[in-house]
Design a protein around this nucleic acid. Sequence first.
RNA 1: GGGCACGUAUGUCAAUGGUAGACGGCUUCCCUUACAAGGAAGAGGUUGGGGGUUCGAGUCCCUCCGCGCCCACCA
Length: 903
Amino acid sequence: MIDIPKTYDPKEAERHHYARWEGRGYFAPEINKDPNAPAFCIVIPPPNVTGSLHMGHALQHTMMDIMTRHKRMLGYRALWLPGMDHAGISTQLMVTRQLKKEGLTRHDLGREKFVERVWKWKEEYGGQILNQLRREGCSVDWSRFKFTMDEDLSRAVREEFVRLYDEGLIYRGNRIVNWCPNDQTVLSDLEVLREPNQGKLYYLRYPFKNRDGAITVATTRPETMLGDTAVAVNPNDERYASLIGQTVILPIVNREIPVIADEFVESEFGTGAVKVTPAHDPNDYEMGMRHNLEQVNVIDRFARMTEEAGAEFAGLDRYKARELVLEKLEAAELLEKVSDYEFSISKCERCKTVIEPLISMQWFCRMDELRDLALAKLREDRKPQFVPQVPYEKVYGDWLENLRDWTISRQLWWGHQIPAWYTTKGEVIVARTRAEAEAKAGTSELTQDEDVLDTWFSSALWPFSTLGWPDETEDLKTFYPTSVLVTARDIIFLWVSRMMITGLKFIGQEAFHDVYVTGTILDKHGQRMSKTKGNGVDPLEVFDKYGVDATRLTLAQVGSTDTRWNEKQVESYRNFANKIWNAARFCLINGEMSVPGAVATGSGDPFEVNDRQTLPLHDRWILSRLNKTADAVNQQIDAYDFHAAVQELYHFFWDDFCDWYIELSKSTVTAESASPERDIARARLISILEQALRLLHPFMPYLTEELWLKLPIAHEQYLDAAYAGAEPTIMLASFLRADSSLIDDSAEAEMKAVIDLISRVRNIRSEMNIKPSDRIDLIIAAKANLKSVFSDSTDQIARLTRAKDISIDGTSEMPKAAARAVLAGGAEVAVPLEGLIDFAQERLRLSREKEKLEKEATKLETQLGNADFVQRAPAEKVEELRARVTDIAQRNAALDQMLEALS
RNA sequence: GGGCACGUAUGUCAAUGGUAGACGGCUUCCCUUACAAGGAAGAGGUUGGGGGUUCGAGUCCCUCCGCGCCCACCA
């Protein structure tokens, strides 16, 4: 007797399979020996080197692994390429913090030592997520693993920079940017958060130079007035028409500044007059450019006031300076009023420090021409194909249309240093290497630009830099464009758009055909999970508690809509895993063949017969169900409908296979003495289980491998042709493609009648309080077609209804003392209950049923009585309703007879 | 300020304009030798409110209520 535990232990299965798969190279596309195999490729969104696994990752990884395993089993040359992002700011902060504990700053170490230190940190603490990826069962090809700071990827980044610069798409300029005073770097617009802020609106009076009085301006940031170089009004504002061109005296500073007219000013807001600070406000900057205004920098990179702000302000923090400015204006009676005002404020996405807009020399990427590439691809070719298409296609398109230039330099040390050098004369040389720069410059006296590139500048190349670009490698030819990108919606702009753009620019083809956008997993209150809120659920703890496979099923069914985390759901899939385990246990316990050493399946298909109609009903039925399921699951995975696929598999395995097929086969399979019938039934049972495991594998890799290897079958025969000769593993077995010749609707209809009969009898047993141990008799009356179906299945019906004697007849007289039921299709069943039956109760039971039927009949008849419906609805719909009415009438008549017999 | 979603059983979610389902929970019975993480049988819904289009609406349109998300240069 085979010894298998009664409960599935996921940890046991998770322990050894992954290392075996990885060690034998199953994840690498090279395992595929079919030279004509179609390619399938997903590049993983590279997790940050500082990151550790959260639910969002687990969700995306599950979907990517399902798709990759599915395609691999179908014989595709499948590649899921893993990697990691150097995550500029995060990583630098992490190491800076570590240094702080030692009482050091990065400047104490110097750039070179600091960068060394970051690499050391990466080796020691970075990339925790990589082992977590293994735990999840992700079938990524580790031999192709890439880190964004690897030498080959860095080379790609320099290539990108040089090419764009040579085409004039990258430029260096002194412009207003988002500055984080805490991180001491510039940020792109996408790295800035807007947060609502309860602030104040201050009304300041600026006296006229050549006349009495003053003009009042409203501002939320009075300290910036020290850098004002104009006051602006709307040109159409009659109140101020006469003031345009006048000069006002800037209080405190006593600078003379003009009143200008600009369309930007909203007359309705505040006083209709705006102070203009070109050096510290993006709008004012634009206005300043339009009117040739002077830029006075009064705030520095530490958000402190500069010398230019005046001696008494220099060195003061911006908020301290605000107080002092207000104090002085108040004293001069130039502070007209202060009101409460809510407005949004810009903060650094990472450290939440309030952003200081200031003018700074930075590198920018011009986006108009590049954006047009992506827009044209979207409008003309519908690429990428977003899933779901609504709303993402529109969101992406709209964003592209309003795209502004991208600030790509960062004042960090960790990252790709900008490949630009300066000669002693201040000339700029952009080149791939220092040597190339020296050759271009004709001198070796060059200083490299201190800044590094935005992390997303390197991620933008991910789908092809990882495949070898700028070299024309085999991988690039085979796997680009990649098949699908799986991501959460928060990086559609930051990352997806930029990959599309660079892909089109450098390769001429879209980076991926499809973009599948997953939903978000929320906590049980519907809140986003976040570190700061501490409401996150750790996937690793869920793995420990319920197993990886159960967690994967839970995640797979999340799909594209936001879902609240529900641990009960994982528990129910844990139970499902256990169910599969026990079904397999049953098959294995009863898996021995009469010929010692024979395998259950291996010498051909155990269902192979000359005439399929000679197969028992339950065999024809399960083959039909299996193939329909395979068909559905293939389509659903291709359509990214993982939710439906999980439902399909769950119900096939539990309802069809366990509840019915195993039960219907049981008497033959468990027969005590060996016989050819027993062998064949056992082989068939194992064959269905084997195929079901293959269908389940992409979703539940560990459990299916664990069980599949235990099956008494000729494993090597099930490998996909592309993997012939490999050591057996279910992950290289052929994924089921539906065989339409095995789909048998009449078998399904007949089986439905049998199931209906058994259910009705069980219902009678339950309602009549018949003890499970009590055997009953059944009298069945049915027309010829069903009569033969029932008589072919009497043993099974008897077993499943716990009946001892069954008589089937077309016309037989039903005993009065019996509980009866009418089945769909007009058959009737009676359970004689001489001496046990309570006539009144039975009448009640039947009347209740009649009531239900009548209610439905009324509804249908009303609908059919509607001339408009009959006229306008499709004919088949009308026919369908008529057929149902007929069936109900038949059953009702039978119920009437039964009721009459009881009275 | 602009845009986009969502609201279905007690919970979490499904449902090409055509009989509203699944899982969990709940009730009753059963430790029937694959599985009590199980089996059998049940109960449970005016699909957030109101209006409209349609033969027919959870689904399409309008409106209100509720809860979210994204974008944005009114100081």
